[in-house]
Amino acid sequence: MSGRRTDQADDMILETEGLTIAFGGHVAVQEVSLKVERNRFKSIIGPNGAGKTTLFNLLSGQLRPTAGYVRFKGKDITPLAPFQRTRLGMGRSFQITNVFPNLTVLENVRLAVQSQQGVRLNWYASAKAYRRFEEEAKHWLDMVLLGNRIGVMANYLAHGEKRKLELAMLLALQPDLLLLDEPTAGISIEEVPAILEVIRKVKEAGNRTIVLIEHKMDMVLDLSDSIAVLFNGKLLADGRPEDIMNNETVQAAYLGGLYDDAVASAGD
C-alpha cells in the first residue's frame, strides 16, 4: 500500500535550494529547489540536455555548484566530497557506464560490498579471507541477471550487461538514497522487465528513497510517487504524477503528443 504521509520538513531526505551550475556562460542547472521525501519514489524527466545528469552530479558531489546548496538527511553536504556523501548513505548509478574495466564482474561488485561493510584500511588480510563479501556480491549479481558472468572482465561485457553491472554496484552499496540515471537505457527489450522488477523490489521494501532519471514514460508513471520536470536547466514542475500530466505548462513546454500516448497506455 502507498498512502501518502503528510508533508513534514524532517521527512525530506534530500533538499536543494537555488542549486545552480554554469559551465562558462552556459547555465546547465539553474536555481533548482527540489525536495525528495524519505522512502518515496521520485522521477526526474525532461528532454535531452535538460540538465538531469548534471543535477545528479551536483547531488552526488561530482560537480560543485556555482550557487545554492544541497541538504541530505538534514545536513548541509554542499562542501562534501563524493566519498563522504556515499558514506552518509547516498549512492548513484551513472548514465555513461562507469565500471572497472580490467577487473572481473565479481570484483567490481565486491569492491562495493567491501566499502559498504566499512573494510577500508585493512592491508594485511588476504581479500580471500572476505569470502562473505564475494557471496554477497554474487547475490546482487544474480539479482540483476549477471550471475552467469562473474568471472569475466568487465570490459568484455556487452553494453547492456555493463548497465546491469552498474546497477548491481549501486545496490551492493545499499544506500538510503538511490540516484538512478537511466538504468534501463541500452538493456535489451526482453530484459527490461526484469530490471524494472529489481527496482520495484527496492521500492516495495519501503525503506529506501529512489530518484530516477528516465525517458520511458510508462515506467515513470508506473513507479513514481512524484515527478519533477526539468527543462533548460530549470525546474518546471514537481508534483504527483496526475498533476504533472495535467499541468498545462508541462504539456506545452515538453510533453505534447508523447504525453497523451503515455496517459492512454497507463490508463489501460
Binding site: P82, R87, F94, R110, L173
Partner: peptide
Amino acid sequence: RVLLAIRENEQRTESLGY
C-alpha cells in the same frame, strides 16, 4: 584491491566511498 580499483577508475572508486 582498492589500489587496483583506483588504477582502473579513480572517480568511480571514490564514488563507492573510498
